[in-house]
Design a protein around this nucleic acid. Sequence first.
DNA 1: AGAAAAACGTAGACCGATCTACACAAAGAC
DNA 2: GTCTTTGTGTAGATCGGTCTACGTTTTTCT
Lengths: 342, 342
Amino acid sequence: MTEQLKRATISDVAEHAGVSRAAVSKVLRNAYGVSPAMRSKVEESMTLLNYRPLALARGMRGNSYTLGVFLVDLSNTFFSVLAEGIRDVAEELGYQVLIGQARQGLDAQKKLIEAMVDRRMDGLVLIAPFGPNEELEKLGRTIPVVVLGRHGPAQYFDTVASDDIAGSALIVDHLVSLGHERISMLANTQPASEPGMPQTVRRHGYDLAMEKHGLSQWIDHVPGRWGTESGLEAGRSLAARTPAQRPTALHGGADVAALGAYTTLFEAGIHIPDDMSIVGYDNIPAAGLPPIGLTTVDQSGVQMGRQAAELLLSRIEGRTASEHLLVPPRLIVRKTSAPPRR
Amino acid sequence: MTEQLKRATISDVAEHAGVSRAAVSKVLRNAYGVSPAMRSKVEESMTLLNYRPLALARGMRGNSYTLGVFLVDLSNTFFSVLAEGIRDVAEELGYQVLIGQARQGLDAQKKLIEAMVDRRMDGLVLIAPFGPNEELEKLGRTIPVVVLGRHGPAQYFDTVASDDIAGSALIVDHLVSLGHERISMLANTQPASEPGMPQTVRRHGYDLAMEKHGLSQWIDHVPGRWGTESGLEAGRSLAARTPAQRPTALHGGADVAALGAYTTLFEAGIHIPDDMSIVGYDNIPAAGLPPIGLTTVDQSGVQMGRQAAELLLSRIEGRTASEHLLVPPRLIVRKTSAPPRR
DNA sequence: AGAAAAACGTAGACCGATCTACACAAAGAC
DNA sequence: GTCTTTGTGTAGATCGGTCTACGTTTTTCT
């Protein structure tokens, strides 16, 4: 086994350039008190020695130049789109983005977030976290935090979310305009749903829209969560209903859940959209696949990701007043919605 | 703004327990030379003060207890499945997994890997990296590395890969048994393809299998890359051919590419599987959606991820001889493959 | 009982940066 | 020509852990 190559440290650079370590640190940080002559001398030594500052060591006192992104579900491709937007903005400013994925459960979430804090990340973007708002407020007092997907208000962290009330209205309006009355919704009934969580807000938006159209009697929440598994399950339960008890249209809550329901409904011989219309939310890539063609609500994830990153960065720079952004959603009509047959 | 809560350090614990910092460090590391009495005393103080060691600081001398996973494409859900397997194993041993996603390009990949090294990760799993093997060998001499998706041999890093020769054979055999002769393949012609990269091996496996069946005359590589975009493009180019020039079946190389081709082919009015059979590779979740039902090759991603993590951990523990695992693939027949019509 | 070995704790250097306090020199003010 | 002010560079503490070297006590072995 060949010897490991030793990497250059700040001391090596200082010695090579004939200056103090503090001086090198200054040019590294673009700090005040560096003459042009010294700067160029030091920079030359840095490139010559192939020096890269050890981010870990910097983090001990200053910034680690690392942002953490917390995700529950990597396989939800909408989340990865968000992550992409975050990364784009962060990289422009010299920050690295590292993504952590927790397994399901509040406990796992907490552990992962702690792990990120223990690695002295400069700030955190939490994508669709669960748990009570107070926990997040507490976290926000420890480290800059932006929550993606949860609605404000909040005092110690910023939020970026889709206008879920409007999004649900878009869906219901669309279905009603096609002639549907009996419209159910896959409601995410995760334990301890908080106000501000998208599942809460979308459900509320659905209720409001149904009422607006005078369809309160048909309001129907199919319980579950928003994941593929749970969507499959919901589809099964819907298929098990008698045709008379079955809705003619379904607000899926999220694309992954909607596609899950689609799957088991389809397998049970219920044809989409002839027997039932389905509308999703998120516009994940798989939704656009032509044989599926899921009608859905688009949230322009990259944009949301970028905004979240910008908020986080400005918070790291010192802003303390919290901000809460609402992104207008957009309906994308494809093939899973059609007039009811009866 | 409320004051930030100060977190307890090792000195705080030491003082509270009435012992030295070194002693606390010892119980933390399970090091030799700790009496049961002291251990319990210290542990009590730790829980009382709600102490968590700062992983960042530990990394300065010892391990950072962090593994890095490098990915090119978060939206390729197969990769996220791999990441899940890695995380499961790592967490059991107290390691955190942080995922970094690079934008396209060798340069971006290099920068991200450097960033992970600069954060003193204890080891790296690279999922489908590009670039020459020498680069990886060099990296492997700096830090423990396992490459997922590239075939060995290699001296300074381990590999875990699907047996792509066998996988391609599975696909060709299946199509031939259905009666196909004219079978094309979406070949990933990324610049600087290295031996050992899945695209290279799968293509070679396809060539071999075609020859075995006496179909050398029909060997046909449709150029592109393995992403959704490139798949869309390939589908378009295939649709543009005259029916006589068009293959009756397509080895898609990877599910994302296969689904891309499916999309544009479908839009061009070419019906799958009546006009053309398509087989993918990876068995990503979207492939299983019933209206699509992509016939594909499964690689049991979670298992591969777990194996990669185990290799990495054992390498971190000191193993130096490299290992190279080949995972047998499995054909999953669904609805996009059928006998040719003519 | 005396010597050797094992068990237990501690002091303090160390990892590689940042950052405060200060020394010194050059420039500007009066 | 002294007195500030401004610019430039350095010494050394600091962040929160790890780890080596060593001293002291206890146990084990003849």
